[in-house]
């Protein structure tokens, strides 16, 4: 019977490096599932944007050029416009900062700098909270409602997806900070901070995808959309 001289899992006795390798692969697979879900949202956005069914892509009152206006647009007075683009980029930037801080924390843990880990993980958590607040403010100040057409629907769901991701980051960030505080993440056992950094990097990609869509694919290119009836209950 031997006594382990290297970091091992308390439950299985396996080396931490084995656990890390396994968990890293598991995380990549989770990211694949998350990517597929994000692609579903991107498809939804671009599909509705390209079709502009019933001329219903743009929110009522959105600024359109004369050639983009058509008779199918509701004749109600203008009440809303497209969302401003800069908040999407601003929130993305905040998430990038949070991610960079987590990476700093993780790299600090690897090099044995415990204070750096604490600072990185703690600040990353706080910046994520700020991102969540900004995201909430953005949603609550959109110049349209959920029912104002395809654009409004797609943008709101992108933001809802962002909130879901931010809540996950909050959970992970808090976990890394608390565990670092208890000395459970250190020079010999840093893989959980590494995995969190990886996941946050993917979340940045998801955010930038949303920002690109809402910046560059705003006004539908389809100026002669198909006109359909209604499926309202009669």
């Amino acid at each position: 019977m031997s006594t382990s001289t290297f970091p091992v899992s308390p439950t299985t006795g396996e080396p931490i490096s084995t656990m890390a390798r396994r968990s890293r692969l598991g995380l990549w697979f989770f990211i694949v599932a998350d990517v597929a879900g994000t692609i579903a949202l991107v498809i939804s956005y671009t599909y509705l944007w390209s079709l502009n069914v019933n001329g219903g892509w743009a929110p009522p009152g959105a600024t359109l050029t004369a050639s983009q206006t058509n008779t199918a647009l509701p004749s109600t007075p203008p009440k809303a416009t497209f969302a401003a683009e800069w908040p999407f980029w601003a929130i993305f930037l905040v998430v990038v900062i949070a991610t960079a801080l987590m990476w700093f924390g993780y790299r600090s843990a690897r090099s044995g700098n415990h204070a750096g880990l604490m600072v990185g993980a703690g600040l990353s958590f706080l910046v994520t909270v700020a991102a969540l607040v900004f995201q909430w403010i953005q949603i609550s100040t959109f110049p349209f409602d959920a029912g104002d057409g395809g654009y409004a629907s797609a943008v709101l769901l992108l933001c809802a997806s962002n909130i879901f991701h931010l809540l996950l980051l909050l959970f992970l960030g808090m976990g890394i900070f608390m565990r670092a505080r208890k000395g459970l993440i250190d020079k010999t056992n840093w893989y959980q901070a590494q995995l969190t950094s990886y996941y946050m990097t993917w979340v940045c990609v998801a955010f930038i995808l949303g920002a690109i869509l809402t910046t560059f694919l705003v006004v539908s290119p389809n100026t002669d959309p198909a006109i359909f009836g209604t499926f309202k209950q009669q």
Partner: peptide
């Protein structure tokens, strides 16, 4: 939430 992803009247498909 009354969005319109699948409601053709309001831009859905």
């Amino acid at each position: 939430f009354n969005t319109s992803f699948f409601d053709p009247l309001n831009g859905g498909s």
